[in-house]
Design a protein around this nucleic acid. Structure first.
Lengths: 251, 251
DNA sequence: AGTAAGCCTTGATGTTGGTCAAAGCGTTGG
DNA sequence: CCAACGCTTTGACCAACATCAAGGCTTACT
């Protein structure tokens, strides 16, 4: 609409210290000086269009990325072209942790809507972490949380039935939206049925059919990508049995 | 056989600096002083009997553990008792990384044969990591490697057929044995068919049937837990198509 | 605004792997 | 050394999900 040069400078100069996502992505209890040093390292606001890749598997690893606004999927693909979505990522979530091990990105990260990310140059973050113990600890915690999440996905893929998987998926989305202050029972899916299926180890037809089934039972209302959870308790009940017996609190 | 008090002291005093697993579990290029400090923090040799748990989901998290000798499984269980094996672990491999995020262990770690582990008290390791940059980096790399491994398991569970899963499993075991200097085509499975199945998202009968099928084709020889890979190339070929298109080198 | 492409839904049919059952073999512990 | 238990194998049958196919709807591009 307007040329970017006329956007007030203030709007561009978003720093970690005043970012609304602070408690989602940064360690708590940094003092002013530490915050300033962090601000100096993190590059704000790289923008991506829907469909654009933030990084691709095999590319050199330089930085982690935090979602600022928008929505991403990460996925890996096999030699013969099968794709596995390894995660969906919304504001405050970090992507690229799998690139550290070999200094090469291990997955593709693709924006599912127009999005904005913060770039965290990893080697500079590492140096900072040596001097700010809570930052070091914070990164260990973040990586550990990703491992916990992955193990729960294994449980989902290894043990759960189609209905359980989809219910778990919807409840999970709903909870993450709640944390971010969005409506938890009324949302737009940013991904296609095929991408949901890839993540859940199902075919797109099964995803579609299962959504229809939930709708018939009056548990949800489906209008294409617009989903309403009418009876979320029913979904939760469906997931209750197969959920981790020792769920890890998120913080 | 003999009482432990008569074992020569030398045999008990194994330190990281002279451990044969050094290049599997420690960062390279530590100087003598750094090594000494590491030795001071890592507690050697806790022994476990077959079937014994090293830690359990929900217990307070204090330490990471490195397998010294033996073999472990890690698993999580759901409220209604379904179990998902999240990994098998052999010498030089680290367990417990999922406990960092919430200060509580996120899985059970169980010895599948008589085993020995080194204990790495995490908070002391963290402090050490602040002073030894390569140690800090090493831990980031280890955790990242676990994430990469988990993503590959997702691909396995989400996209691969029973035969592909089992072939991938056998090839993976074989490769890890090779690295450790063991025979790569002739080994004893330490886990049951059911545990293999749990890891691969299959039922034990399917595991058994698929092993039989491989044997009929002359690719492997199965004698209960004793497995020989007669034509490992065939197994590799089966896995080739569904393997990660951008495999991450292990180091 | 019109049109093509992509996405979603639904139905009919097929296949893989799960379930149930029984028997053999090994191992362990008394 | 024997008995009991657990693990494995194999067969018969079944269910869940995949595959194939067609039609409708939405979106995006010109």
């Amino acid at each position: 609409m307007t040329d970017s040069t006329v956007v007030p400078l203030q709007a561009l100069k978003v720093s970690c210290s005043n970012c609304t996502l602070r408690e989602l992505c940064l360690p708590l209890g940094l003092n002013r000086e530490e915050m300033t040093r962090l601000d100096a390292v993190i590059r704000q606001s790289r923008r991506l269009k829907r469909g654009e890749a933030l990084f691709r598997s095999g590319e050199g690893f330089k930085s982690l990325y935090a979602v600022r606004t928008g929505f991403f999927k990460t996925c890996i693909s096999s030699q013969d072209g099968r794709e596995q979505v390894t995660g969906f990522h919304m504001s405050g979530e970090l992507m690229g942790l799998d690139g550290i091990s070999a200094n090469v990105h291990g997955c593709n990260a693709v924006a599912l809507e127009d999005s904005e990310v913060c770039e965290l140059p990893f080697s500079r973050m590492q140096n900072l972490a040596l001097e700010i113990p809570s930052l070091q600890h914070h990164f260990y915690r973040l990586m550990s949380r990703e491992i916990v999440r992955d193990h729960n996905v294994m449980m989902l893929l290894g043990n759960m039935k189609a209905e359980e998987r989809l219910a778990a998926f919807l409840i999970n989305l709903s909870q993450r939206l709640t944390v971010r202050g969005f409506a938890s029972n009324d949302f737009i899916l940013r991904m296609s049925r095929e991408e949901i299926g890839s993540f859940l180890g199902l075919k797109l037809e099964t995803v579609s059919r299962t959504l229809s089934k939930f709708q018939q039972q009056g548990w949800i209302a489906v209008d294409h990508k617009h989903i309403q959870l009418v009876q979320p308790e029913q979904l939760k009940q469906l997931v209750a049995g197969c959920a981790n017996a020792h769920p890890t609190p998120n913080h």
